[in-house]
Design a protein around this nucleic acid. Structure first.
Lengths: 212, 212
DNA sequence: ACTTCCGATCCTTGA
DNA sequence: TCAAGGATCGGAAGT
């Protein structure tokens, strides 16, 4: 049986035990993203339905997706439990929108199961399909180097009054996050969409004097 | 709104009416395969959960899939209703196996909804996403602070490997967010709790070259 | 994800 | 030319 890597944070879950009890060659590793690596370049992010919805509301899932896709060519999401049964505050449109976004735009398949036992079966089957489908098993190795662009944008979005759009413009204009933070007010003024109010707020945060 | 083609056999279904009632430009055509064409080369096969399971049992779904994939580069399956709730003769393994096969080997995404209304919403959203994309950017950061003081810490926490504790230490050590971002690796090493791996990651994000 | 709301930015006007 | 006003865009917060 092929090797199956479980993220160490996930390794205490019932699912990891289940996989092992079914004869999988489970090893635990600290993964930078994803929960299960089924084959070379193939990883699964597993979420309970409640988790999945929560991670849509706080946008966590979207950045995870970005990381997962850059680290593994074949990324999957497995959602455990009934997505539509959870009493949650999410609007139906938002939930369907997220599913469409993930499938259509990000091209990451979403698999669903109803409980942990099914998830275990599914992961093992997916692994078998991946390996047999390819006709051979490839040696497992870590993902390729991480794309730092989302990180840079994430950082810049921490500035007050700066969202995704302004962050992109700032990074493009200055070339790097470092340069954005080193920019003078006059230089910032040159970026369209960044006005006086925003500039003041930005400088206040950057120059704020911290003392013990 | 873009045109949405419905297979003529499907056109009398409630779903087609729903789509039209929501303002979609629905036209009926006799399609070789697939039920809905959302965009050029993008089609959806829609099945109720019961249907889906039946089509697994008689293997119909696999040939349909093959046809769908050759006719349309982007093929999707939408399953309506609870896959695991139906009292059917299918074994759990067979169902999961089929889902894995479709996702892993055939690479056809399976979307699920709980009723026809949701399917309609989903199809319209998928169409929009396919044609226009999201139309906006997803903010990578949720829940920004409003005051300036936590603002500096919040900003620094955006660095990889830096949480609240490390952010506090960095700010105390350097005096301001601006200074933290200007720090050289050697200077960063002087801060307890910030190791070489973190420093490398930090510099990579700060120095990442952004180009259009 | 979607929606709504609010404030900032930008652009036009008109004195 | 510039100030005031209004249209538009983007960010923030809530579901």
């Amino acid at each position: 049986m092929a090797r199956l890597i479980v993220d160490s944070r996930e390794s205490r879950s019932g699912l990891a035990l289940l996989l092992a009890s079914r004869g999988a060659d489970v090893v635990s590793e600290e993964l930078e993203c994803g929960d299960y690596v089924l084959a070379d370049g193939m990883a699964v992010e597993r979420k309970t339905a409640t988790d999945f919805i929560a991670s849509i509301l706080d946008r966590r899932v979207f950045s995870q997706l970005l990381n997962l896709k850059t680290a593994y060519p074949r990324a999957f999401i497995v959602v455990e439990g009934n997505l539509f049964g959870t009493r949650s505050m999410i609007s139906e449109d938002a939930l369907l929108g997220a599913m469409s976004y993930i499938s259509v735009i990000e091209s990451v398949p979403i698999l669903t199961t109803s409980d942990t036992g099914q998830t275990a079966s599914l992961l093992l089957t997916m692994q078998r399909h991946a390996i047999e489908g390819l006709g051979y098993e490839i040696a497992l190795r870590g993902g390729k180097p991480r794309d730092r662009r989302p990180g840079a944008q994430f950082l810049v979005e921490g500035l007050p009054g700066v969202g995704p759009t302004a962050a992109k413009k700032l990074l493009l204009h200055f070339g790097s996050a470092q340069a954005v933070f080193a920019a003078t007010p006059e230089q910032l003024r040159a970026v369209p969409g960044v006005g006086p109010k925003t500039i003041t707020a930005i400088r206040e945060v950057l120059d704020f004097e911290v003392r013990g």
